[in-house]
């Protein structure tokens, strides 16, 4: 499964401290944890799979052996949470 940001409807606003994500249609503003914000930031514009995002994060943060720590699975469950909030969609 591939995911992409609902770019027309979502505004990401990194603030000192935390990142905010505003869904224009629902009117809700979500406060994102650091990890979630990193996942959204790593999400390629055309969309990406949890494994691809995992690879990007692994490089960016110099994590080793992504699969061993269950990174892909945890990214996928985060993306599903974001999907329920209308921040990302399945590409």
């Amino acid at each position: 499964m591939r995911y992409r940001l609902r770019a027309d409807e979502v505004r990401i606003e990194p603030l000192a401290g935390l990142t905010l994500a505003h869904q224009r249609l629902s009117g809700e503003t979500h406060v994102l944890s650091e990890e979630t914000a990193a996942i959204l930031d790593a999400l390629p514009e055309r969309g990406g799979s949890p494994a691809e995002i995992g690879r990007i994060l692994t490089e960016r943060f110099e994590i080793v052996e992504a699969e061993d720590v269950g990174l892909t699975g945890s990214i996928e469950s985060r993306l599903e949470e974001l999907r329920a909030l209308g921040l990302v969609e399945r590409a």
């Binding site: 603030l15 000192a16 401290g17 935390l18 990142t19 905010l20 406060v31």
Partner: peptide, 8 residues
């Protein structure tokens, strides 16, 4: 206060 604390 941080920006995000102030926002909240």
């Amino acid at each position: 206060m941080t920006e995000s604390e102030c926002y909240v």
